[in-house]
């Protein structure tokens, strides 16, 4: 697929709705200054409204790929295109990417509301407008009553919810999540997964999600990218063609177990190939 190079075609693409590319990775790779080849040449298109999950063993470059998409890292070769052109050409209006880190990364000195409002404050949004957005984002993650709390007064799961609320206030075109629930216990993680997939559905978000967990990948994704290591590369792609919104009944269904088994088999295949080479 060709990259939309002009603003005009980009606009047309965006209006086309679901399936239009949001971000395109064109033959990009990443070699770190110390010579480590973190990513082999990668081609990948993230389509709008999809929930794309990157899964694979440690060191397969999942996080590096996510950081390339976020423009926190520059590719060594190749290009990464946003829907309206290269990163360098896009102004503040063109794209809004939200990134949810592995840790909640909250400012300990700021109350929950101030933490959530941060991206809007940095963009100098008017107080009235940002107040409405913060209240909306907090209610979406179920933290209406905690606006005046400090992060240290919250549990790990609640802190992660604040982090998600902060990513929602900017109404992002693309939501990037780097193992956001990896540090949480399984019950909290399941509940947050269910909330996340509902949010994604309601707000028509485009999400790229990194995880180690097969169950999480199957429960959340519309498409799963299985990555291999040394160097990091895309090995397999698997679609999870199940209706949305998904809830706990999907988690307990035979279909869910079937997808998990299939994904697990693909991951084993990848690691066996890796051992041989």
């Amino acid at each position: 697929m060709l990259a939309p190079n002009t603003a005009l075609s980009a606009k047309a693409d965006k209006q086309a709705g679901a399936g239009a590319p949001v971000v395109e990775i064109l033959s990009a790779d990443k070699v770190f200054p110390d010579g480590t080849r973190a990513l082999a040449t990668i081609d990948l298109t993230v389509a709008s409204n999809e929930f794309l999950t990157l899964i694979g063993p440690s060191g397969c470059g999942k996080s590096t790929l996510l950081k390339l998409i976020a423009n926190l890292l520059e590719p060594t070769e190749g290009r990464i295109l946003w829907w309206s052109g290269g990163f360098d050409k896009v102004g503040a209006r063109g794209r809004s990417i939200a990134f949810v880190f592995q840790d909640p990364t909250l400012m300990p000195w700021a109350r929950v509301e101030a933490n959530v409002r941060l991206p809007l404050d940095l963009a100098r949004m008017s107080a009235a407008q940002s107040r409405r957005r913060v209240a909306d984002a907090l209610s979406r993650v179920g933290l209406e009553g905690f606006a005046r709390h400090y992060p240290r007064q919250l549990s790990g799961g609640m802190k992660m919810r604040v982090s998600i609320a902060r990513s929602l206030v900017v109404e992002p075109n693309l939501l990037l999540m780097d193992e956001p629930f990896g540090a949480l216990d399984e019950f909290t993680r399941n509940r947050l997964d269910a909330d996340l997939v509902r949010l994604w559905w309601e707000r028509k978000l485009t999400t790229v999600f990194v995880t180690h967990s097969i169950y999480e990948a199957v429960f959340l994704s519309t498409r799963v990218i299985i990555m291999g290591a040394q160097p990091g590369r895309i090995c397999k792609v698997m679609a999870i063609d199940e209706p949305h919104p998904r809830d706990e009944s999907f988690r307990n269904s035979p279909r869910f177990a079937e997808h998990c088994r299939a994904l697990s088999a693909l991951l084993t295949e990848v690691s066996v190939e890796q051992m041989r080479s």
Binding site: A70, L72, A92, F99, F101, T105, L118, L122, A123
Partner: peptide, 14 residues
């Protein structure tokens, strides 16, 4: 400074 927060500020074009 928390490096995660530095990244967040960078991404928000602070």
């Amino acid at each position: 400074v928390d490096p995660g927060l530095v990244n967040l500020f960078r991404m928000s074009r602070a």
